[in-house]
Design a binder for these strands. Structure first.
Length: 436
RNA sequence: GCGAGCGUCGCCAAGUGGUUAAGGCAGCGGCUUGUGGUGCCGCCAUACGGGGGUUCGAAUCCCCUCGCUCGCCCCA
């Protein structure tokens, strides 16, 4: 077949899907609004250097997953693989930081050249929160609470919050040395991947999925033990805040973040509904990033949430509980009225009536097929509208449409007998009737 | 980048070497129903992701390629 296709890992969102996305987006927007966050929109395309410096040259994201090309002006450009670096760049470029702390959110597509699998696409979508210029552990708790409450608002079930502290750069350097020493002594027990990472990115070995390595790491020195007193105190403070907020969390000393800019608080919200890519939301503190991008030393914390994964858990929640919040959010909308019409004069009249009823605020689906009534009724039932207004030439003759109950109104009952005439020049009466 | 599984009509799906590739849904055309939503008839893949090969003969076997799915890696 020579049919043109979308690029690998780049998905179309069909109307049925888009509906769910819109529901999530509107809850999200409302939620952030109530928390006093402001939306920021940045370009999809940035100078490659922004991500190289922001995320870290050595990370896999920068090293092998970016969509990078040279533009006509000879600049190296990259489709953003995440949102934080862009937000920080925009804040710096526009002088936002000199206007006090910034509480920002964003959403939109991100691009990573990876092998697609469950919950992972090459073009994927994130919604994220970034607090710039706030250093108190209180803000860590607030940011986490924001994510937690949003997910709760969406009716998503069975989520687990895991937290860890990565400490300061200093703390991590100390720990890294200790961990490498400990692992070197046991390198014959490590899997191949982990052995390779021993010198490139030893901290990542901590969240290896290899069962043998996992078992080995049970007894390894942990980052938490190595933390400075100050870092420890900070982390304890955060835990107290979370308890005060009644947000349940698990301490996971093996939780590390993939991007270089994180320090102190790191957290992930995972779902057991997702297969291998279980993280719905991940984030942490990144006090060094603003400075690294050429700005003043500025503390910051944020998270990003994967839309595709969120939709997946939302759908799982909706099918598990058909009357819950998630199901309500993902439910198909139904028209108030389906207009069945056939015959030249009837079709014109139906067009006009549909137009008028819509102006009056009703959701009206107009059958434009001109097909046999039997076919139109089938479609009318499928639309799940509770009512059909039937207009044929007879009805035009009498000036009365026939209003019929559809299966969408009450599927179990036999609706074929309910049938009433409705004057076509009394649309107000019709609207009032349908509004009940 | 590595590994495994899979690719038959818009969707679901039968068919594992042998004449014209089931069926359902959707779509289109028509008949019918004396409570217009029922019922029925017809049309809808010279074609089995693409290309090569084996064979008298392939959707069915082999090779390559593309795509999808899941896992590793990585990450949201």
């Amino acid at each position: 077949m020579n049919q043109l296709q979308s690029l690998r890992g780049m998905l179309d969102l069909l109307p049925e899907q888009t509906r769910r996305w819109q529901a999530v987006e509107s809850v999200t927007r409302d939620h952030f609004h109530r928390a006093g966050l402001q939306e920021i929109r940045t370009p999809l395309l940035e100078l490659t250097e922004l991500f190289a410096r922001g995320i870290g040259e050595a990370t896999d994201v920068v090293g092998k997953e970016m969509y990078t090309f040279v533009d006509r002006g000879g600049r190296s450009c990259t489709l953003r693989p995440e949102g934080t670096a862009s937000v920080v760049r925009a804040a710096l470029q526009n002088g936002l930081l000199s206007q006090g702390p910034q509480r920002l959110w964003y959403s939109g597509p991100m691009f990573r050249y990876e092998r697609p699998q469950a919950g992972r696409q090459r073009q994927f979508h994130q919604v994220g929160v970034e607090f710039l210029g706030v250093s108190s552990p209180r803000s860590d708790a607030e940011v986490i609470a924001l994510a937690w409450a949003l997910l709760a608002d969406l009716g998503v079930q069975g989520l687990v919050l895991e937290i860890n502290s990565l400490g300061t750069v200093e703390d991590r350097k100390n720990y890294r040395g200790e961990l490498v020493k400990w692992l070197e002594a046991r390198s014959e027990k490590l899997d191949d991947d982990s052995r390779k990472r021993l010198y490139t990115n030893p901290l990542r070995i901590l969240d290896s999925k290899n069962p043998a390595t996992k078992a080995l790491l049970e007894d390894s020195p942990t980052l938490l033990e190595t933390l400075s007193e100050e870092s420890k105190a900070r982390f304890t403070e955060l835990q107290g805040d979370l308890k005060a907020l009644h947000i349940p969390f698990h301490l996971n000393p093996h939780l590390v973040r993939g991007l270089d800019y994180y320090c102190h608080t790191a957290f992930e919200i995972t779902s057991d509904q997702l297969g291998a890519q279980a993280t719905v939301c991940g984030g942490g503190r990144y006090d060094g990033l603003v400075e690294q991008l050429g700005g003043p030393s500025t503390p910051a914390i944020g998270w990003a949430l994967g839309m595709e994964r969120l939709i997946l858990v939302l759908e799982a929640a909706a099918s598990a509980d058909s009357s819950g919040q998630a199901a309500r959010l993902t439910a198909a909308t139904r028209p108030d009225l389906y207009l069945v019409n056939r015959g030249e004069r009837a079709e014109r009249a139906a067009l006009v009536i549909a137009h008028q009823l819509r102006a009056a605020g009703l959701v009206v689906e107009l059958d434009g097929s001109g097909a046999a009534f039997a076919k139109q009724f089938k479609r009318a039932d499928r639309s799940r509208a509770p009512w059909a207004l039937v207009i044929g030439d007879d009805e035009i003759e009498k000036g009365e449409g026939r209003l019929k109950r559809l299966k969408g109104a009450a599927p179990e009952a036999d609706q074929t007998s309910i049938d009433q005439l409705q004057p076509l020049d009394d649309l107000i009466g019709l609207v009032r009737l349908l509004r009940d």
